[in-house]
């Protein structure tokens, strides 16, 4: 998650101190991604190191204020005008689990899909209830929250569709022996560090 860019973007509005930044971030993102205050300060330290912000003074209660620099403003503009990269594969636990499951013998992939789909549908029902009980937005913060909620709903829906698709692909693939699961490849170990037994055998 882009905590660094988010905090910098909020700082473009004016100087802030750590707790204030955390509150502003959470308020503007519907409280969806709570921030640890330690994470806020370590991010501010890195931003300061990179000369994107600087400390401007100390408040009545000893809190340090941070202000954005010109380089920081350029970084904000670049972030807001550049697309978020979708070219690399994010590490998705479910995709990894299914990928391994279809290649290893003795794993009931259909059961994995079914269990996951039930859980994912329940999550979708829960998100939908939140949406059902939400009134039309009456502030920018409400609007931000409704967009975040919709984003989660669409993501979870996509997972259900992908699971359905995987299930039908699996049914078709079962007829093809070439794609049957197989045990760990014995040859692969030779590429790594040789075992002692192998070395002795070689002598």
């Amino acid at each position: 998650m882009s905590v660094r860019q988010s905090l910098l973007t909020i700082l473009e509005q004016g100087p802030c101190y750590g707790y204030q930044l955390r509150t502003e971030f959470e308020r503007r993102t519907g409280g969806t991604w709570p921030l640890n205050i330690g994470q806020v300060y370590s991010t501010l330290d890195r931003l300061e190191r990179d000369r994107l912000v600087e400390r401007t003074g100390v408040g009545d209660e000893g809190q340090h204020y941070y202000e954005i620099t010109d380089a920081g403003r350029d970084a904000v503009r670049l972030w807001l005008t550049s697309p978020v990269s979708r070219t690399g594969a994010t590490r998705d636990e479910l995709a990894i689990k299914l990928a391994l499951a279809v290649t290893l013998p003795g794993v009931d992939v259909a059961a994995i899909i079914q269990t996951q789909r039930t859980a994912t549908l329940r999550a979708l029902q829960d998100l939908t209830r939140m949406k059902m009980t939400s009134d039309a937005p009456t502030s920018a913060d409400d609007l931000a929250w409704s967009l975040v909620l919709e984003s989660l709903i669409f993501t979870v829906e996509a997972e259900v569709r992908w699971l359905d698709h995987s299930e039908s692909v699996l049914v078709r693939a079962r007829a093809n022996a070439a794609v049957a699961p197989r045990p760990v490849d014995g040859d692969a170990t030779r590429r790594g560090r040789p075992s002692k037994a192998t070395e002795e055998h070689a002598r």
Partner: peptide
């Protein structure tokens, strides 16, 4: 019928945050 998902008031972590 291969699957049934019942709404059981599952508490999404978001609820706590909100």
């Amino acid at each position: 019928v291969v699957d049934q998902a019942e709404y059981a008031g599952v508490e999404h972590t978001l609820r706590a945050h909100r």
